[in-house]
Design a protein around this nucleic acid. Sequence first.
RNA 1: GGCGGCGUAGCCAAGUGGCUAAGGCGGAGGUCUGCAAAACCUCUAUUCAUCGGUUCGACUCCGAUCGCCGCCUCCA
Length: 473
Amino acid sequence: MAIKIFNTLTKQKEELIPIEPGKIRMYLCGPTVYDFFHIGNARPFIIYDIFRRYLSYRGFEVKFVMNITDIDDKIIKKSADEQVDAATVAQKYSDAFFEDIKKLGIQPADKYPRATENIPEIIALIEKLVDKGLAYVVDGDVFFSVSDFQNYGKLSGKNIDQLKSGARIEVDSRKKNPLDFALWKTVKEGEPYWDSPWGRGRPGWHIECSVMSMKCLGETFDIHAGGADLIFPHHENEIAQSEGATGKQFVRYWLHNGFLNIEGEKMSKSLGNFFTTREILTQYPAEVLRIFFLMKHYRSPVNFSEELVQQAQNALERIITTISNIDVALDQSQRELSGEAALTESIDALRDGFIAEMDDDFNTAGAMSKIFDLVKEANLILTKTQYSDADYLALQKIKETIVEFDSFLGILSYKQHQQTTITEEALIEILLNVRSELRRRKIFDLSDEIREKLIALGVEIHDRPDKPIWRKK
RNA sequence: GGCGGCGUAGCCAAGUGGCUAAGGCGGAGGUCUGCAAAACCUCUAUUCAUCGGUUCGACUCCGAUCGCCGCCUCCA
């Protein structure tokens, strides 16, 4: 079945047809490394990690590239504020970036090109644009001339005249059109610079993405993704630069995720509602953040709050509990299992349903409901006092299905956070054995006291007919 | 002012021109249990912001109104 994705360029869902059959070339706008990234930034990193892995799961060979913008106004500002050079700032926060995405369970991209490592290519592209008459040089600055590029505005649905009338920007009088944007900025006192045909300077924002994406993925590639705020001007400008230079279509499918708000407000430092991902990760495991985003549609805005994350965590624990209950049940099945699994039809239907949801513009929220249905099916079996072979096989099948989907969801590793040391386990076992003996002798006040104290330590006890089981909360 | 999006139960959140409007969280009652916990069962939207229109039929399509938000300036 075909995979459909919503393309910002056409504003509709389209079947995903790769340029090269079986292969997807995908680019995600990565971080500008001037600070720790915040929880709003984490959303695209997480969801596109999931999409990319899902496409692999569906049999595509995916080449996934994410850039590191390591030279830019904000980095320069930070370096001035902190009295260190720009390269040091960039290094510090790009190291932090890699640490954080690793903690988020994000698989490394195939390539992480850096702007500063592609200066010759950037200069070459600008020269090409100048040669073609799409860019002009003023006092060592180079600007892209939007009025000379026919399709300017095709991604964001804006046209040059509308933009002009709505423009609130200070107009640089050297620009031919107020919307013209800088490709190359001439150096200012104390700033890092590179030599160029127009004198010393540095690349403008936007140009590095055009250069690095085309360098790594070709002049036309399949998917370009990022936050909705990048549609204009960043991605619009990338199209202008790239298509202006090559005369070819730059990107087939543009994907944009919705924003993350705090209490319905955009997150910003001035409002004081700014949370870095590393702060959040000290309070919640990555898997909780992943399922939090999974249970919402990627194009919708989401609110972020303690309460909502807690809801997601409780939902995740439901899945984890069932999986570990399945494990306990399967451990008990000493015999060879034979025959047909129970509920085969219903499990297969849920599995197909999950994939159908994912295929429909990555509807993770719809897909997750199928996981919960699988969990429910498992729980229904687990409630029985005795399991048949068919029951065991069904449990096995349900678990395998969820584990398989977890190859891109990345949420089951949550149970690692509940893990205990061997010593802890041994001690808990001793206490439970004592408690079982107390219960056998009907000394319930003492057995309950052991239970209460263990719960206080975060160890939950469930008395089953055969023997008690426990888990760390 | 221009462009775009959203408004579904206490909360979060999918979805569809007509079968019972997914799923999660929370809550209530019950089963199980020595008591619990976990799990299970039942209940928790006659209704999808409001008002009109199109239609045999709309929550889903169209229009208006109200409310919220984003982009148009750095931003995921």
